[in-house]
């Protein structure tokens, strides 16, 4: 099954607003940084966006779209972990 993958395509554009962090947390009903799959590191000299692979379990389009600077892209075609089995009658 294809999965959408969130990529940081333009990290240099990040302004540190953390809308992506908060958007990811809202999807799991939280307002916190605890367990967030995205962390924004750094400060005045620039920001780094750290993604935990578990971010791809979320609606990554919503996370990408909320970034005011377009730092992210969403790639199609990622493979879900694990094997895929076909039903017996399809074999």
């Amino acid at each position: 099954m294809n999965k959408k993958i969130l990529k940081v395509s333009f990290p240099e554009k990040c302004i540190g607003c953390e809308l992506c962090v908060l958007a990811a947390q809202r999807q799991v009903g939280k307002a916190s940084f605890e367990g967030s799959p995205i962390r924004i590191m750094g400060g005045k000299k620039g920001y780094d966006i750290h993604l935990d692979p578990s971010v791809n379990d979320l609606d990554v389009n919503k996370i990408s779209e909320i970034c005011p600077k377009g730092c992210f892209s969403v790639e199609e075609g990622g493979q879900e972990e694990g094997l895929e089995f076909k039903a017996e009658e399809d074999v």
Partner: peptide, 14 residues
């Protein structure tokens, strides 16, 4: 106006 400066947390303006 929006810009590309460091932004406050939770604000998209920069």
């Amino acid at each position: 106006e929006a810009g590309s400066n460091p932004s406050c947390s939770g604000c998209p303006m920069g």
